[in-house]
Design a protein around this nucleic acid. Structure first.
Length: 553
RNA sequence: GGUCCCGUGGUCAAGUGGUUAAGACACCGCCCUUUCACGGCGGUAUCAUGGGUUCGAAUCCCGUCGGGAUCACCA
């Protein structure tokens, strides 16, 4: 076979690879600086696994003084979602992570290694494809069966039944020049396949920055390098792009581990030095059957990063949670440095765990509520407002109309040394403070109050008596002593030790007494300091609320 | 099924031959607070399993089991 003739036949106009090698020179970076990238496909959302990788990328670039760039892997037209080009980028931006180079959210490209969309790099891939044909390392394949996804799945099903894996040497690798020429004359489309050197049982040694040296089965499949539409699949495209863009380390999920040998053989065929790889653990969830599985957009809302935006979980909390998943010593660092920005944390790629963590909403919300508890009332206000502007317009309007009132509500029990931790996410503000924002009197029915029916009579007495002694002008001390006096009058214990000794002698203790008042005013057993609530509401509204419950009972 | 990866409490995990096996979340209890919280203190609970090697193993080796990932002209 005359490979030169074949290469010219297949790719008559392709540039020589030297053109690209010269066009994209080495980067001028200080030693040790890493070049990393996030390279998602335009599927319309950003998966938490991608985000995990982006955090790692971001940290690596930051700690080494390197470059973090964004490349769009839009080589699969079938899966592509219209207008999704910038979704991942914008979501990333929402979380405060902006790449230094590549595609930018405003649609422009920044950097000298573009284009940063794979669909615009076809000419480049063609050059490398031609090089491989020229060297006899790749061949055209005219089989249509592999292009049919349905058939592929069927074939795979069959393969799963067999005892061992099938090493796939493609029949087209033996086509003669004349046969190829004839098929091309018939206008038949071809895919380019790698002429694999692998034999069943061969091993390759690869080095993963986190996992160390790994022995993997060598690739022996004649994998597709360029699809019959002229677009290369991930395997071929990423090797070339990462080479040309001077990537030093690829960070990707460990679901890529088993196809890694294919990529390694592509490097070898292309005569390129293999760059560093890190295969990160896969964030998982417990499935219906109680088993772990990779978190997925289809079943798990948490897989999509927009979920956190929609829930109003502070982006810092999400970043810190994910960062902690990647480097679990982060949490110790955080405890020792409560005031520092998480960006100051020194990230260590080699401390990334190897086993797949289960996604833990509890933990995330714990980080979140601690974070929110440290914000000022004004900060909470602006966060809640910007959340509401996007997801609850009516509430946003209310917040804007009653700004000062809202801030005073958010400020309850916030300014002390140990603020309350009621809010886990900004979306909860409306519900948590519903008794301050909503038309409380109009809305409440007896079943909305957190009160046992067996306590109705007792509650009625407390509420109806209390409304007579309430005075908004009282200071906190007076306010409380009135409560005590009234409680005692109605048979409640004012000495808690006494009460604990002989509970049957009392209607309850002061806590129980207060609970009825609290429920009347807020509907709930759990609410911030009553005194403050009453002073914000004022005499008139408070009394109306007490009367409302009294009448319902 | 083949292959690879992983296996310390319910969850995230520290740990690299000698530790009472850290810490965090969750759960439970107590204390503080004569309201709600916040906070403080404490508790339950873990080295998947069987063999080695060793004076000594969560840690090293082998087997077993369990879980995961992957096996496309998808990424």
């Amino acid at each position: 076979m005359d490979y030169k003739k074949l290469a010219e036949l297949l790719y008559p106009n392709a540039k020589d690879v030297s053109f690209w090698e010269e066009k994209y020179p080495q980067r001028n970076l200080s030693s040790g600086a890493e070049v990393v990238r996030i390279a998602p496909s335009p599927t319309g959302y950003l998966h938490i696994g991608n985000f995990f990788g982006a955090m790692v990328d971001y940290e690596i670039a930051k700690t080494t003084g390197g470059v973090f760039y964004f490349r769009l892997e839009d080589t699969d037209k079938k899966r592509e979602v219209d207008g999704a080009d910038f979704v991942a980028l914008n979501v990333l931006k929402e979380f405060g992570i902006s790449p230094d180079e590549g595609l930018m959210p405003n649609g422009t490209e920044k950097g000298n290694y573009g284009p940063y969309r794979q669909s615009e790099r076809l000419e480049i891939y063609k050059s490398y494809a031609k090089k491989l044909v020229l060297e006899g390392k790749a061949f055209p394949c005219f089989c249509q069966k592999a292009a049919d996804v349905g058939e592929v799945f069927q074939r795979r099903e069959k393969e799963l039944q067999t005892e061992a894996s099938i090493s796939e040497k493609d029949p087209c690798r033996n086509l003669t020049f004349e046969e190829i020429e004839a098929k091309l004359k018939e206008n038949k489309k071809f895919a380019l396949r790698l002429k694999s050197n692998g034999k069943e049982g061969d091993k390759v040694v690869a080095f993963d920055l986190c996992r160390g040296e790994m022995e993997l089965p060598a690739n022996c499949k004649d994998i597709v390098l360029v699809k019959d539409n002229g677009i290369p699949p991930y395997a071929f495209a990423h090797v070339i792009d990462d080479h040309l863009m001077k990537t030093t380390t690829v960070v990707r999920g460990s679901d890529w581990l088993s196809t890694w040998p294919q990529h390694l053989e592509i490097y070898e065929a292309l005569g390129l030095k293999v760059i560093n790889y890190i295969h990160t653990p896969l964030i998982s969830k417990l499935g219906e059957n109680g088993n772990k599985r990779k978190i997925s957009k289809r079943y798990d809302p948490e897989a999509d990063m927009r979920f956190y935006v929609e829930m109003g979980i502070p982006k810092v909390a999400v970043c810190e949670y994910v960062l902690n998943l990647a480097n679990s010593n982060f949490e110790l660092w955080r405890a020792a440095n409560p005031e520092l920005d998480f960006r100051e944390f020194k990230f260590s790629p080699n401390k990334i765990g190897l086993s797949s963590p289960l996604f833990d909403m509890n933990k995330l919300l714990d980080i979140s509520k601690n974070y929110i508890s440290k914000l000022s009332a004004t900060e909470v206000y602006s966060n809640v407002l910007s959340w509401a502007k996007e997801f609850d317009k009516d509430f946003a309007k209310l917040l804007e109309e009653r700004k000062d009132f809202a801030i005073s509500v958010f400020n309850i029990d916030r300014e002390g040394k140990n603020p309350r931790k009621d809010l886990e996410m900004f979306s909860q503000a409306k519900k948590v403070f519903s008794y301050m924002f909503l038309d409380f009197l109009g809305q409440m029915k007896i079943e909305d109050y957190e009160i046992d029916s067996k306590d109705f009579a007792k509650a009625k007495r407390v509420v109806s008596e209390y409304k007579n002694v309430l005075d908004e002008k009282d200071d906190k001390e007076t306010w409380f002593s009135k409560i005590k006096t009234l409680a005692q009058k109605l048979g409640f214990a004012t000495d808690n030790k006494e009460f604990k000794k002989n509970p049957e002698n009392f209607e309850g203790n002061v806590a129980n007494f207060c609970e009825f008042i609290r429920v009347a005013i807020t509907g709930r057993k759990n609410s911030p300091d009553l005194f403050t609530i009453i002073s914000i509401l004022g005499q008139e509204k408070t009394v109306k609320r007490l009367e409302k419950l009294e009448n319902l009972l």
